[in-house]
């Protein structure tokens, strides 16, 4: 039995706390610069767009892009979203189309 898992847990807990809490720990009570809210206004769509793409065509095990049944599920969900379907239905369409295309392929 190795003690490595607990060492990794401990190390990652410490670094994560420091990184996530850095804003408060470093900045304290000082104010953020005036341009910062505008920066965040652009950061949010940019970051979310990156996440859409990496979650859609990326994969943990493979290098490069992976085009699989997720694309079909995403397209189906987009159609449902355009038709103003409620969020749970949009999600359901995404999973169902993906699972269906994968089962057929």
């Amino acid at each position: 039995m190795s003690s490595d898992p607990w060492i990794v847990v401990g190390a990652l807990v410490v670094t994560t706390f420091l990184i996530k809490g850095a804003g408060s720990l470093v900045l304290g009570d000082r104010e953020l610069p005036v341009w910062f809210p505008r920066f965040v206004e652009y950061l949010t769509p940019a970051l979310l767009a990156v996440l859409v793409v990496t979650q859609l065509v990326g994969s943990a095990g493979a290098h490069g892009m992976t085009f699989d049944a997720r694309i079909a599920g995403f397209a189906g969900a987009l159609v449902a979203w355009r038709l103003k379907a409620p969020v749970p239905l949009v999600i359901l369409v995404a999973a169902a189309v993906t699972a269906g295309v994968r089962a057929l392929g």
Partner: peptide
């Protein structure tokens, strides 16, 4: 993969993106 749950997160992030 069997339940197509890997397609859920890009769709959710898209839904979060749309209002921005």
């Amino acid at each position: 993969l069997t339940y197509g749950l890997d397609a859920v997160s890009p769709v959710l992030f898209f839904l979060l993106l749309a209002p921005h």
